[in-house]
Amino acid sequence: MNEITLTEEQRDCLQELINVAMGQASDKLARYLQTFVHLQVPYIELIDSEVLPERFAETYAQEGVSLVSQGFYGEKGILGESLLIYKSHDAHGIAEILGYEPDDVSEVEQLTDISSILTTTFLNGLAEQIDNQLAYSAPRVVSSMETPLEHHLQQLSFNWDLALKVDISYQVVDFSFNCDMVLLIPGEAIKNIQKVLDQILDEF
C-alpha cells in the first residue's frame, strides 16, 4: 500500500477550496428551498480503501441508507466518484422538502433531484477554483436494503486506493435534514490534486 499523505499546507488549502464549494452548494439549496442551511467547518480525512467499508458499516449499520453515486472526470487527471449518503429517515422526508405530493415521483427521482443540486454545485465550485472543468456520469441510486454498500464500492470503474472523505452535514433548519458527502478519488488523481494544491500554494 503506497502511502499518500497531505502536508499541513495542502490540507489547509484543500479545506478552504471545499469550504467555498460547500458555501455555494448550501446557498443554492437555501435559495431553492427558501430556507437557511446551517454550515459547519467541513471535516476532511484521507481513508484507506480497506477501511472505508468498515467505517460505512459502523456509521450506518443501525439504519438503512440510500446513496447517490456519481462519477466526475476533469482535465489534468482529476477524477473520482461523489457519494451523497442519506439515512433512510431523511430520504423519506425529501418529498416534503422539495414540495412534492406523496407518490408524485418515486423516491429515486427525489434523491436524484436533491443530489444534483448539491453534487454538481459543489463539484463545479471546486472545479472553478482549480481552473478545471468536470464532466459527470449519470447518477445511480443505491439502497443499502438492496445492495450492500461494499458491493457498490467494489463495482466502481476505477480501483481507488484512498478516499478523500469530506464530512459535510447540510442541516436544513426548517426540515431537520442531513446528508453526508464522500468523495472517492483513486491514487493517481490524489497526486494530481496535490500538484494543483501546490500550484495554488506557490502563488501565495
Binding site: 469550504n19 467555498v20 460547500m22 458555501g23 455555494q24 446557498d27 437557511f36
Partner: peptide, 9 residues
C-alpha cells in the same frame, strides 16, 4: 469575506 453567502446570512 465568506463562503457562506446565503441571503439570510
Amino acid at each position: 469575506v465568506s463562503a457562506d453567502i446565503q441571503p439570510e446570512m
